[in-house]
Each structure stands twice: as C-alpha cells, then as structure tokens.
Amino acid sequence: MKPEAASAPFAGPFAVATLSASDGPAFPALVTADAQVIDLRAALDSRHLTMIGLLEDWDSALPTLRALARDGGPSPRPLAEFRVHAPVRPRQVFQSGANYRQHVIDLHVAHRAPDDDRPEEERRAEAAEIMDRRAAEDLPYVFIGLPSAITGPYDDVVLPVWAEKPDWELELAAVIGRPAYQVSVEEALTHVAGYTIANDLTDRATVFRRDMPQIGTDWLRSKNAPGFTPLGPWIVPAESIARPEDLRLTLKLNGETMQDESTKDMIFDVARMVSYASRSARLLPGDLVLTGSPAGNGMHWGRLLRDGDVMDGSITGLGAQRTRCVAEDAS
C-alpha cells in the first residue's frame, strides 16, 4: 500500500526517511514539511549512504540537516515520486510490555481469580494502587526483538498460517543516535536522535509455551514473524518533539478506532526505558526502544486480525502508517 497523499504531516521543519525511486536502491533522505525530498547521498558525504551511517554521525550531521530544510538542497523532488520504506534497519530492537497504566489495570481486572467476587470498582482501585507502586519502586519490562520482523509503514503484513490470534500493538519508538551504556535517566534522552511509529504485532496464541509453561513467555515465536513490526514512515528529530510524554497514539482497524491513548498514561517514560535498557546492553545508533502499547488491543475487543484488515496507526507529530493484512498462502 502507499500513503494516501503526498504530504508529510510531522512536527518540525523536517524528518528523515529511507526512500527509493522506481526499482532503484533505497537511500536516506530528508523530507521537508512541504513534502519535498532531498537525497542525502548527494547532500552529505559518503558516510551517510545508509540511515545507520547518518545516525552514527547524528550530532555533527544535524546542523547540516537543519540548513538543508531551511535553504533547500540539490535537486529536491516531490515525495509522491518515491516509495517509503522502514526508516531504519536497526541492529537491535528493545521491546517493552505492560507499560500503559490503564491497559495493565484492565488486564488485572479481566483476569480475576474465580473466587474473587469483589465489585469491579474495588478491584480496579487495587490495580491502580499496584500500578502507582510499580511506577515508583519497580523497573520496566524490556525484552529483545528481531530486526528481521521490521517492514515498511505501507507494506502488507503477512499473517502466518500458524498465527491463530494475531493482534496489533501501536507504540512510540525512540531511535538511538548516540551509543548508550549505563546512562542515567537524566541523560538518557540526549542519546535519542528522534522518534517514529511502530506496530508491534503479537500472536497471542503463542505468547506462552504450552509444552513447558514453567518457561514463561515465548517472544521469539509470538512477535518476530517477518513483517510483524511495521515501522515509520519517518524519524522525526527529538528536537521537534517537545513532549514525548504527551503524544496521542491512535490505531484504527478498517476505519474503527481501537486504540486512542496518550503517552501520559505510560508507567515508565522514554527516559526511564532507555536508561533501563542501557544498564544491560550497549545501545547503538539506529537501535529502537519500543515503549509499550496502550489499551485497546484485539484481545480487549475480542477481535483479532484477519485477511483483508487495514490498520491505520498515527502518533502526534510523527505522521501515520497504513498496512493491510494478507493471509499467508497455506501451501
């Protein structure tokens, strides 16, 4: 699928993207607010032939990007002439679960013990108290995803034959622009180059191992099928997103709103997520830190993804993605 119009509805004067023309190779590009494309292979030096190369040199490249957006660059062309790919192919993907307060409260209330006959209001108040205590005292829940699951923001999503309960999870993704290892919460955001949109699909039927339940979650099986992480369309510089803790996430399924929540509802904000991930791993330029998904997943609605479904996902200031679900050929 392709974007509905040649527009670039993101915050700030520019974003960066990975594009291609016709059957040509993909390349890093600057996209201006009026939907003009500047090929960064021509505007910058050979170190920036890929998005990873650009992000590895983000601090020194940023002034040039600002100038290109302001003054123009060599041979700008309309965005409509290009195919939009996932903005970056990261080396590492850090994913998060149980990070939206209302979502986790809903789960807590829905999964009550059979002998718990307390009113819902009482159980919801208990869950809220647990979430507040968790935010103050506990740690984020972060696990590893595979870069091979990433696909473009307008590409079809293939639903594997074995995926019995494929579900959507719209998320804010932070893109690392400076290596981060054991960084504090206070300095964490200085390592973020920008933000993009991720839809972190999950097959609910395979989240837990049936053969060995004591092992717990199986994120390899449930989250990492090819194309299970539509990403993009843009990386919007962090300097253009004044308040990442106050962005609206909206996912529509066939035009009907399913998720509609603010990042204000996060239990752990972006800075705490990046800092926590860096305690154990060295975050590299281009890496993604996904920050969890709000209430309104398919399991909540009793409606999972199926062949022909169209998902429209948007986040304030970051644009929108549209993906169509296609059933895998059983043969």
Rank of each mutant, 00 (worst) to 15 (best):
A125R: 15
L253S: 02
F27C: 07
A173E: 00
A193F: 02
C325R: 01
F208V: 09
S20F: 05
Y154R: 13
W301I: 01
Q95R: 14
S60H: 07
A225L: 02
V183T: 08
E261C: 11
A180S: 10
E187A: 10
M266Y: 03
P119H: 10
G292L: 10
D287W: 08
F94N: 00
A327H: 10
I105R: 13
P237M: 08
Q92E: 08
D106V: 01
M299S: 08
T64P: 00
D167Y: 02
T250S: 06
T64S: 15
D167S: 05
L189P: 04
E120F: 02
R70V: 07
L40A: 03
S20V: 06
Y154M: 14
I197P: 00
F208A: 05
S278W: 11
S75R: 14
A238V: 06
H48P: 01
Q36A: 14
P226F: 02
A149F: 01
T257D: 08
R66I: 13
M299L: 08
V192W: 00
I315E: 00
F14E: 03
L253E: 05
L288D: 00
A173D: 00
D117P: 04
I144S: 05
G145P: 02
F94E: 00
G255L: 03
H85S: 10
Q321H: 13
A180D: 05
A33L: 02
Y154G: 08
R77H: 06
G97R: 05
D200N: 14
L283A: 11
G298Q: 07
Y100T: 05
D115S: 14
Y195F: 15
A67G: 12
E239A: 15
V16S: 03
P63W: 12
A225I: 02
S46K: 09
I150A: 10
D115K: 05
T18V: 11
A174N: 07
I105Y: 05
S184N: 02
L79T: 14
A180P: 02
M51P: 03
P78Q: 11
A128G: 15
L231D: 00
E120Y: 00
A295Y: 06
R178S: 09
R41M: 09
S184W: 05
Q92T: 13
D211R: 09
D115Y: 07
T257A: 14
D312W: 09
T316K: 06
A17H: 09
S280I: 09
P179N: 09
G313E: 01
A110V: 03
Q92R: 08
T323I: 15
R209M: 03
E121S: 08
W162V: 14
A125G: 14
P166H: 04
N224R: 04
S22W: 08
G255N: 09
K264V: 06
M266C: 13
G53Y: 00
L172E: 00
G145C: 05
A135S: 14
P119N: 12
D246K: 13
A136I: 07
I38P: 01
A21N: 09
K223V: 03
P294W: 01
A15R: 02
A188I: 02
K252M: 12
S184I: 03
E261V: 10
E129I: 04
R322E: 12
F208E: 13
R204F: 11
L251T: 13
R89S: 15
